[in-house]
């Protein structure tokens, strides 16, 4: 070895500070990871302590009221439930149908990649823009008015990309050997899709659909655009009724909290109800994913 460029002693001396630096940054990285979780914890604790004492049977079953002590959220709960009634079938049929077309029927080519690109771009459109689409198309052009059907269809379009992508992944995960076995017995394509591929992909599809549904339930922005009344007394009884929904109720009570301070607590209580609902939905999704997902 001719010239030595590396001074072993110097390298050794520098190493101590390099190793210390590594340890210091590692601590910082860990703290950063905790930061998000700490905010989450603070948020949950704050909202629960603020709202929990307002939650009782009356609050859950009463009509809305400007009087904070008598106000209830039954209307909002029903509104959210009715929205789900619209969102679930629409997203399932369109979402799964689109996924089947893209994964199993479409020829690889321009049309297929155009539709796929279109879907991924739709996923990035801000939800408020969907609200304007819903307002223009469903509320005004089709003259539904600000009813459950208009809200549900708007939300369904909004979460459609989520369902499509989840269903596509689930269909892709079904091994080719299964459908080959079915074709091998002379089954037609649709028979194979309906009897073999869809049942095998169902847990994945359901998980995605439930996650999409929980996204739809928490969405507020598109509904604010549709013109949901702030104080609506009658409960909705069908998809052509006007409505309010849990997130809308939270929104109205929050912005009115500067007028009546107690509204903030009602908003917190409604958030608890909404979070519990989301928690239940997500638990079901996880349960399905863990229990019924077949491993090939």
């Amino acid at each position: 070895m001719a010239t030595k460029y590396m001074d072993a002693e110097l390298v050794g001396k520098r190493m101590s500070s390099r190793v210390r630096k590594n340890a210091g940054w590692k601590g910082l990285f860990f703290a950063s990871t905790l930061f998000g979780l700490i905010v989450l914890a603070v948020l949950l604790v704050r909202i629960f302590t603020q709202g929990i004492e307002y939650i009782n049977i009356d609050f859950l079953k009463n009509h809305l009221s400007t009087d904070a002590s008598r106000a209830g959220i039954m209307g909002a709960i029903l509104g959210t439930a009715w929205l789900m009634v619209v969102v679930i079938p629409v997203t399932m049929v369109i979402g799964v149908g689109t996924a089947i077309y893209l994964e199993l029927y479409a020829k690889k080519g321009k049309l297929q990649s155009f539709i796929a690109t279109n879907i991924s771009n739709l996923a990035g459109v801000p939800s408020i823009v969907y609200g304007l689409l819903g307002l223009t198309l469903f509320v005004r052009a089709l003259e539904f008015g600000n009813v459950i059907l208009a809200g549900g269809l708007t939300l369904a379009l909004l979460v459609l990309p989520i369902v499509i992508v989840a269903a596509q992944e689930a269909l892709r995960a079904v091994p080719g050997s299964l459908s080959e076995a079915s074709y091998g017995m002379g089954a037609t394509k649709w028979q194979t899709v309906r009897r073999i591929i869809l049942p095998a992909a169902l847990p994945g599809i359901l998980t995605g659909a439930i996650l999409a549904l929980s996204r739809a339930i928490g969405e507020t922005a598109p509904l604010t655009v549709l013109g949901i009344p702030a104080l609506l007394i009658p409960f909705p009884e069908g998809i052509f009724d006007t409505f309010t929904a849990l997130p809308m109720q939270i929104y109205y009570w929050t912005i009115d909290a500067s007028l009546v301070a107690e509204y903030a607590n009602l908003a917190a209580a409604t958030i608890i109800v909404l979070l519990v609902l989301l928690f239940l939905l997500n638990s079901i999704a996880i349960l399905i994913r863990n229990k019924f997902q077949q491993r090939y």
Binding site: L40, L43, S214, G218, I250, T254, A267, A268, L275
Partner: peptide
């Protein structure tokens, strides 16, 4: 993932009131 799943209206409430 839970942090990402919290509805934005809840964050709005939290920002405003806390």
């Amino acid at each position: 993932e839970i942090l990402a799943g919290v509805p934005t209206i809840v964050y709005g409430f939290f920002a405003f009131t806390f």
